[in-house]
Computed example of a mutant assay.
Amino acid sequence: MTLATASSTVAFNTAPISHLTASTFTPSRSTFVPRLIRHFDTSLHATFIPANLTTAQSARVNAIVCSTRFVKRGATLYRAGDAFTSLYAVRTGCFKTVVVHRHGDEQVTGFHMAGDPLALDGVCSDEHNCDAVALEDSTVCVVPFALLENLCQDMKAIQHHIHRMMSGEIVREAGLMMMLGTMTAEQRVAAFLMNLATRMKARGYSGVEFNLRMTREEIGNYLGLKLETVSRTLSKLQKEGVVGTSGKQIRIIDDERLASAGCPVTDACSRREHVSQTTQADL
């Protein structure tokens, strides 16, 4: 797996577009919703706009996002081999990135929620190296990469911000490689849950109780585990009073024990989230 293959995407945690309904869209493809952004999208500001920019500079960044795209559950935002033209920021919903092997098997390389970037994998080769599939009805902001590059030339703070975002992906992949190469099944599942909790909390949601957007089979694929192993590990953690589970709902009862069970991968995941958060706060 290459660094580009495992790249994630930035999602925006903003309210859904109220006038869109499921009947507006066909289930087999994603749909563009042209929309001029006349106001500052708070999620866009948190993801792509450093805190020290002036109002006028922030407006320039905001101006390059001129459309959103609705992606129905199960549809693809882009596929491996598609030409790379834009970065995407998840506004609502959740995506998985998937690499399809020659013999047809799929490998999940990441899960991307509101506030995460998507399509960083296309920067190195000008084409996408994986599929991005919506796990639920989702919307993304479209950021044309050529316009973003031009903006980076004029505004070094934006350039540095994007560099830090890409660096965060390197840290994420290092943690994933450590997990797949050295960790037990229980450590992998614990680290995965702690990472999700950290990301949810960073986006203003509860880091203690949340719903999984992915299936246990998809979690197992990502962690290099069988479905039965994931289910058995979650049951074990529940019996030990570490977590509570009910279908896709997860409740973390003892976060210290869960963090301890997930070491050392949890530390790597936390560093990746720290890079993302300090990028927004420090620039």
Rank of each mutant, 00 (worst) to 15 (best):
D41G: 06
V33K: 00
F40L: 00
I49S: 10
H39D: 12
S23C: 15
P50V: 08
I49H: 05
H39G: 10
S30D: 04
T26F: 08
N52T: 11
F48R: 00
T31K: 03
T26G: 04
L53R: 07
P50A: 10
I37P: 01
P34F: 01
H39P: 03
S23T: 15
I37M: 06
I37G: 02
L36I: 11
T26D: 10
N52Q: 12
S43A: 15
V33N: 03
S28W: 05
R38C: 02
T26P: 01
F48Q: 03
A46I: 03
S28N: 11
F32D: 07
S30G: 11
F40Y: 01
I37C: 01
L44D: 00
S43R: 07
T47L: 14
S30C: 07
A46T: 13
A51Y: 11
P34K: 05
N52S: 12
P27T: 14
F25I: 05
L53E: 05
A22N: 11
L36A: 14
P34N: 09
T31N: 05
L44I: 12
A51C: 12
R29Y: 00
S30P: 01
F48G: 03
D41N: 13
T31H: 11
A22D: 15
R35P: 01
F48A: 01
S28R: 02
I37D: 12
T31I: 02
L53Q: 09
A46Y: 12
T42Q: 05
A46F: 15
L36S: 12
T54L: 07
F25G: 10
T31E: 03
A22G: 05
H45V: 13
S43K: 08
S43F: 02
H45E: 14
V33C: 06
R35N: 04
T24V: 09
F40T: 04
S43L: 02
P50T: 04
T54W: 15
S28E: 07
T24Y: 06
F25M: 06
S28Q: 04
S28V: 01
T47G: 04
L36W: 07
N52A: 09
T24A: 13
T26H: 11
S30E: 03
